[in-house]
Amino acid sequence: MSINRRDFLRIAGASTLFGLAGVPAVEEILKTNAEAAVLPGPNALKAKRWAMVIDVNKIGTEEDYKKIIHACHSIHNVPDIGNKKDEVKWIWEEDYEHSFPGVSDEFVPESIEHKPFLLLCNHCAKPACVRVCPTKATFKRPDGIVAMDYHRCIGCRFCMAACPYGARSFNWRDPRPFIKEENKEFPTRMKGVVEKCTFCSERLARGLKPACVEASNGAIVFGDLEDPGSEVRKVLSTKYTLRRKPEVGTGPSVYYVIGGNEHA
């Protein structure tokens, strides 16, 4: 044996220290790697707080709804599992009464009562899901988007219990066999993690608006809520809108135009 006890202890101690210091060490390596740097995309769309205004009156037929949902689900590899128990969805239809429980009145115009609304993650100003996540796997970006880090999610589903909007889905099983046509440019998810709408952060980074906005023929408007000149602010200043469950104080960033069918 060429190694004595003292050397062994020294090496063991050093490797323990290295192991503990592992995470900052990565940063060090990158720093020592000369001038390497990371930058946002040159065309990236930026905002202080991204928001969405949805005017379902401008969505005509059931086909148009399907087109919007398909635009989202197909590019994000959202599986179609085909049963309600294991269901995964990012954006979906729901009637007025169940979209706005507690707000819906007994007597509302026919055009509202039977018109499906499009529901998705509200990217809240004070998201309860972010507050409860034990690993920061779900977090709020400076531009207001409530994002998910699927690499870090442990699948405790505390965020699903905390979300007042039912916006989150869990992968109860491997989603891959249920993705009809994979979008090769976007990852899938794996079993055991929670997923939801990301406001298409991967498209914003490349200068593109969210897929649902693009597929909506102007029915969905997207922009910076804190910019008085933005498209969303223009709509909000002229149309009466509702947000889902504002009373719980989460500050949803998705607005719904109510009525206002007179121009149609």
Binding site: K84, K85, D86, E87, V88, G155, R157, M160, A161, G166, S169, F170, N171, W172, R173, D174, K191, G192
Partner: peptide, 14 residues
Amino acid sequence: YGLGVTGMSRDVSW
């Protein structure tokens, strides 16, 4: 298989 072997669902997630 994943937690799909349980009776839990998107709505009753615990």
